[in-house]
């Protein structure tokens, strides 16, 4: 289905390309064989089912059996649902609050680790949490943040009379956000460092002579040169944040029970629709929430690309 489009492109070169030699023509012929296999697999396994999901979102459906047309009913219900509002706020807190913290920490770490003693070691270690299943982290934090746990024992030893109840309902979401920050910071640090390592040393050596500080070097050399990677990470983070789900689920519930609504995100909302602990599954509203996630993903991707793209042009 995508082949004719590509052929057309090949036959009618875009105006931007300056002059088409045999080299450029050969390159254009590569596009089809290079792109189509991935496109095909992706479209069949992910896009076709997603179209189906869009269709479900206009129906009431229990996951099997008869479907009943609901029009926009699922969407209007979702928007009028205060719990959905709460889920939206929580998702945004994760997107921007946790996101800001994660990127800041990762930048600082990347900067520090560029010439720190033991950088390989630290880099290897900060990635560890990503290897540990969320369930284990949830268990560990349960032990650690219990009122009688390690965290408060340490605080009490340090003279804090009334250490906070980390897992109390009013603190729980903050604790969850801290946990996500900790988990993600390591991953992004490793990615940024991989990008920073690819910057030719000559750039830095030139800067050394000018006596630039570490911060200035990072700001003026490392950042601009890995801007693409930062852009990708920003998109990934945004989308990951929209889909935040498993961490909340394992952190704040027993097996088979949903966490309190105060902790819900978009995806927990959708999941709760399709996999309720008790009642009839409502794939319609779950799909509506999923469709909204997809739409927001596209919007965010375009937005971040635009912002990053502009920055790229000005900085180079």
């Amino acid at each position: 289905m995508a082949t004719p489009v590509l052929e057309r492109t090949a036959a009618r070169p875009a105006v931007r390309v300056e002059g088409i030699g045999p080299f450029e023509a050969a390159r254009r012929r590569m596009i089809g064989p290079f792109l189509l296999p991935a496109l095909l697999v992706y479209a069949l396994v992910m896009i076709v089912p997603s179209v189906f999901t869009v269709w479900i979102s206009f129906n009431d459906w229990a996951g099997a059996g008869p479907m009943e047309w609901a029009g926009l009913g699922n969407y209007t219900e979702m928007i009028a649902d205060p719990v959905f509002g709460q889920s939206f706020v929580n998702t945004m807190k994760i997107l921007f609050g946790v996101g800001g913290a994660v990127f800041l920490i990762s930048f600082v770490l990347t900067m520090l680790l560029q010439d720190m003693v033991g950088r390989k070691f630290v880099r290897a270690v900060v990635f560890f949490p990503s290897l540990v299943p969320g369930l284990v982290i949830a268990i560990l934090w349960g032990f650690m943040l219990d009122p009688d746990g390690l965290a408060n024992s340490v605080l009490e030893a340090l003279g804090v009379a009334e250490p906070p109840l980390w897992l109390a309902p009013e603190n729980m979401f903050t604790t969850v956000m801290a946990g996500m920050t900790w988990l993600a910071a390591g991953t992004y640090t490793v990615i940024f460092m991989a990008a920073a390592d690819r910057i030719p040393r000559a750039f830095y050596e030139a800067a050394e002579l000018d006596g630039a500080s570490a911060v200035r070097r990072f700001w003026h050399i490392t950042m601009p040169l890995m801007w693409d990677v930062i852009g990708v990470c920003a998109v990934l983070w945004a989308i990951g944040a929209l889909k935040t789900f498993e961490f909340v689920l394992v952190f704040a519930g027993a097996t088979g029970s949903l966490p309190p609504t105060g902790l819900w995100t978009f995806s927990v909302y959708a999941y709760a629709g399709a996999f309720p602990s008790d009642g009839v599954p409502r794939y319609g509203i779950a799909s509506a929430a999923a469709v909204l996630t997809m739409v927001l993903t596209v919007v965010l991707t375009l937005l971040v690309r635009r912002v990053m793209g502009r920055r790229e042009r000005t900085d180079y």
């Binding site: 991935a38 992706y42 992910m46 896009i47 076709v48 089912p49 997603s50 189906f52 999901t53 996951g63 998109v235 990934l236 989308i239 929209l242 889909k243 789900f245 995806s267 959708a270 999941y271 399709a274 996999f275 794939y283 779950a286 799909s287 999923a290 996630t293 997809m294 927001l296 993903t297 596209v298 991707t301």
Partner: peptide
């Protein structure tokens, strides 16, 4: 392609 990142697994499981 990026759009696929936003597709939640549970949403497309049945299809």
């Amino acid at each position: 392609f990026a759009m696929g990142l936003g597709i939640p697994g549970p949403a497309i499981m049945i299809p």
